[in-house]
């Protein structure tokens, strides 16, 4: 009877991720006993401050669009300490197949993009870094040292060690000190925001309180750090892997288009979160191209790197004060 129990446990642990959204979480619920003050302290640790959408975008554009890509490459298996050949080969798809297609597409339409590169991806694939830098249009931002999970680290100094190591490595390999970050796994620990300040970063693109730029507040105080929100609904890694929640590129890109339409009406920001190992596939890339063409067909769309957007909204907000 032991074996079935073990199997059941293994299955359950895998399952738990999939069903987490559908079932109430188990375990103790200490928050039920919190006072109002304790609730506010917890709920306001990291919050959205003032919105930063400017009165007008550069050249009278109505909307800013950031195309961003996370080349995670081999970092996830290496982080977990595995080099199983199939897993590694899936990671290699990004630098060897997905990235070249994406860079070709961006070149073809002369569009800028931002690449959030885990430092270890830059170490293992220096050619990829050179290809990103070649056009001079693209930005390289932080995505952890080896795509570490900051929540699981649960260690301020270890998180800082990895973050500052990554800043140094990217500065060396891209020739430019990164000014922005997408937190690895799109998770932030309770220490992360404070560390972003310590690193002197201009902006973050991990959180999702609003769907337009805003200033981050830490424990009720403005940080000066710009948030360019990254909503999971605009993330291909959730939907479009073979076993994603909607692996139909046509339907998914239609949703991205619908999102763009409302953002265009509201005149704010579209932050697309794409992955070379997902959208870089042959059956996916053509739909990205169709989306780009659609957005380009509208008047007044400002395609920009995230750093350019962050700088612009910060300056606009500072000068209007």
């Amino acid at each position: 009877m032991r074996l079935p129990v073990v199997i059941a446990a293994a299955v359950a642990s895998c399952w738990s991720l999939a069903v987490r959204a559908q079932q109430p979480p188990a375990g103790p619920q200490p928050g039920l006993k919190w006072t109002e003050q304790e609730l506010i302290t917890a709920g306001h640790h990291v919050r959205a401050g003032r919105t930063l959408t400017p009165k007008s975008w550069p050249d009278g554009a109505r909307i800013a669009v950031c195309l961003t890509f996370d080349p995670d490459n081999l970092t996830l298996p290496l982080l977990r300490g595995t080099n199983a050949p199939v897993t590694i080969s899936e990671g290699e798809y990004s630098p060897l197949s997905g990235m070249p297609r994406i860079l070709r597409l961006l070149d073809h339409y002369n569009l800028p993009a931002t690449f959030y590169v885990p430092a270890v991806s830059a170490i293992l694939h220096p050619d990829m870094m050179a290809d990103i830098m070649k056009s001079g249009r693209h930005e390289v931002g932080l995505h952890g040292w080896i795509h570490e999970n900051p929540i699981a680290l649960n260690d301020r100094e270890e998180e800082w060690r990895l973050m500052s190591q990554a800043v140094g490595l990217l500065e060396k390999s891209s020739g430019k000190r990164p000014t922005g970050i997408r937190s690895p796994y799109m998770y932030m620990s309770p220490f992360t925001l404070e560390l972003l300040k310590r690193a002197g970063l201009l902006y973050d693109t991990t959180l999702a309180s609003l769907d337009e730029p805003y200033e981050l507040e830490l424990d009720g105080r403005p940080t000066g750090i710009v948030e360019l929100p990254a909503n999971w609904l605009l993330d291909d890694a959730v939907f479009l892997p073979a076993n994603g929640s909607l692996p139909s590129p046509r339907l998914m890109l239609q949703t991205f288009k619908d999102d763009f339409d409302v953002a265009y009406r509201e005149g704010t920001l579209v932050m697309l979160i794409l992955h070379p190992h997902v959208t870089g596939h042959r059956s996916r890339i053509r739909y990205l191209e169709a989306l780009l063409l659609y957005m380009k067909s509208k008047p007044g769309v400002w395609f920009a790197t995230a750093a350019d957007v962050a700088r612009y909204v910060k300056q606009a907000a500072d000068s209007s004060q």
């Binding site: 199997i7 293994a10 299955v11 895998c14 977990r80 080896i146 999970n149 929540i151 699981a152 796994y185």
Partner: peptide
């Protein structure tokens, strides 16, 4: 089990949140 095998790939990308998660992450 079949489901679990495929979900393991997803799991690899989406670790469970919270400090209770086993924090080895040896590659770092």
């Amino acid at each position: 089990m079949w489901v679990a095998m495929l979900l393991a790939i997803v799991a690899a990308q989406q670790p469970q949140q919270g400090a209770t998660q086993e924090n080895t992450q040896p590659g770092r």
